[in-house]
Design a protein around this nucleic acid. Structure first.
Length: 485
RNA sequence: GGCGGCUUGGCCAAGUGGUAAGGCGACGGCCUGCAAAGCCGUUAUUCUCCAGUUCAAAUCUGGAAGCCGCCUCCA
């Protein structure tokens, strides 16, 4: 069993081998904190969260870095518009990022550095690059000399010559080459700045990641990730800076996730269809969002629609309903949860799931394995008889342990099933203005009618409840109800 | 103009040489007073099209069509 990952650098799936045995060093580009996070951020952050969880489950010691870009033109622009400091903007959106991602059950990274806390490291790298003649200062700016770095374009598969042909890039006369990019930008009036050998200014966008990864992970590390859009120019430029500065291979495996479309359309500010995480979480359970994000391969585009979210919500219900059913039947869910953390106790379902995940994080296939197991477990529970009870219990426990273990990797099923359904009901009630006491009264009436075999009345009451969007289920232990979606 | 990707049933989606996972939906059945939930069965002789390689292709090769992304801030 070996993990295989698709490496953007080679364009192939490769066997995953760490630089240091048993240890993974991973850096993922975090957000530029100038606005609220949207579902696209969620995809990237949740995907790498799953990668992180999987690596941990494989027994690796993982150092996971996810940065915040807290100095940038867009932040400055926003701050000026609102008449506040850049810092105020970045603090606000960092806080929002945590609120959104915590809600989505995303684990914190090992370290979550900010660009502004690493200005000295940034200046240090720029100095090295200038000394090596890979960069040049002009009027307080410093540019990277792309033609001096032989491998420029190797990540994105471009050649400088090809790009120049169709380039629509502003010509800056001070640059030696139009593709030279800023390592340091001189401060204009009203902009935040730091002192540097080239005067007051601030770092360019790409250099911070080279500086922080160097400081926190070293000159070479295992995984670098981010959205597909970062391949060029951001990651291409990071490679150029880091490899030029340190003369070593920068990153072994480059992982890039695909985009989220909204109703088959590219999500963009100009189309006005930017879908924010916080707005989605007003309507859908965070774990339903995770389930949705896992429903296709991370490198493919995924389409956010009401239908797909409803499906994911329904699937989440199905999973929690199974857990509830198991604990109602056996009352041993805490034991199962405990076992699910024990590596030695994994069954065949976990092995199938893991095999899918090992193949470049095939979560869609992994989900299929899990839903197969759900069906198997329900089938067993349907067929419980006195004779088979003990044997069934063991089989159910093995299956459920695997399901919970899988859920731990996907970052779902973190709630107590009973509480999940209670909260769901409470939320639905709040948005529907239906009186729960009235519901209970009607259910009691119906139960009485059923007892006296007055099924006409019973059905009439059920219809009445349905009109209130209340669905009922008659169970051996009594009638339960829930709000319809 | 340059680079890259995608096209699998009503919908979503796995599957990279050995005869089409899974989810949603629909239909039939079990269960139920009737339902719901759960379970069982049916739902792609076929994988955009054409040609080729092969004993064998959704999977490899060549070509065509359609869709999309990146090349500018962007997860």
């Amino acid at each position: 069993m070996t993990l295989k990952v698709y490496n953007t650098l080679s364009g192939k799936k490769e066997e995953f081998e760490t630089i240091e045995p048993g240890e993974v060093r991973m850096y993922v580009c975090g957000p530029t904190v100038y606005d609220s996070c949207h579902i696209g951020h969620a995809r990237s952050v949740v995907f790498f969260d799953v990668v992180y969880r999987l690596l941990l489950s494989m027994g690796y010691r993982v150092t996971y870095i996810r940065n915040f870009t807290d100095v940038d033109d867009k932040i400055i622009k926003r701050a000026n518009e609102l008449g506040v400091t850049s810092e105020a903007i970045s603090e606000k959106y960092i806080a929002e990022f945590y609120r959104d991602m915590d809600a989505l059950n995303v684990k914190r990274a090992t370290l979550e550095p900010r660009a502004t806390h690493h200005i000295d490291d940034i200046i240090g790298i720029i100095n090295v690059l200038i000394d090596k003649n890979m960069a040049y200062p002009v009027d307080g700016d410093v540019y990277f000399r792309v033609t001096a770095f032989e491998g420029y374009g190797k990540l994105s598969g471009r050649k400088l010559e090809d790009m120049e042909a169709g380039a629509r890039i502003e010509v800056d006369e001070r640059k030696e080459n139009p593709f030279d990019f800023a390592l340091w930008k001189s401060a204009k009036p009203g902009e935040p700045f730091w002192e540097s050998p080239w005067g007051q200014g601030r770092p360019g966008w790409h250099i911070e990641c080279s500086a922080m990864s160097w400081q926190l992970l070293g000159e070479s590390f295992d995984i670098h990730g981010g959205g597909k859009d970062l391949i060029f120019p951001h990651h291409e430029n990071e490679i150029a800076q880091s490899e030029a500065a340190f003369g070593k291979s920068f990153v072994r495996y480059w992982l890039h996730n695909g985009f989220v479309n909204i109703n088959s359309e590219k999500m963009s500010k100009s189309l006005g269809n930017t879908t924010l995480i916080k707005d989605i979480l007003d309507v859908y359970h965070p774990e339903a969002v995770r389930l949705f994000l896992m429903s296709n391969h991370y490198r493919s585009p995924i389409d956010f629609t009401e239908q797909s979210m409803k499906e994911s919500s329904g699937n989440l219900d199905k999973l929690y309903a199974l857990l509830l059913r198991v604990s109602d039947t056996y009352g041993n869910l805490p034991i199962i949860r405990l076992n699910s953390n024990n590596k030695a106790r994994s069954g065949p379902v976990w092995k199938d799931f893991f095999a899918a995940m090992e193949d470049d994080f095939n979560t869609a296939k992994g989900l299929a394995v899990m839903f197969d197991a759900v069906r198997k477990t329900n089938r067993l529970l349907d067929d419980v008889t006195g004779e088979t009870a003990f044997e069934t219990k063991i089989q159910v426990e093995v299956l459920t342990t695997d399901i919970v273990k899988i859920a731990n990797i996907l970052g779902i099923l973190s709630e107590i099933p009973m509480e999940y359904f209670e909260r769901k009901q409470k939320d639905a009630l709040e948005s529907s203005a239906v009186d729960p006491e009235k519901i209970q009264k009607l259910i009691d009436e119906r139960t009485a009618a059923r007892k006296s075999k007055d099924f006409a009345s019973a059905d009439r009451i059920r219809k009445e409840l349905e009109d209130m969007r209340v669905a009922i289920e008659d169970r051996p232990e009594g009638t339960i109800w829930k709000m319809m979606d």
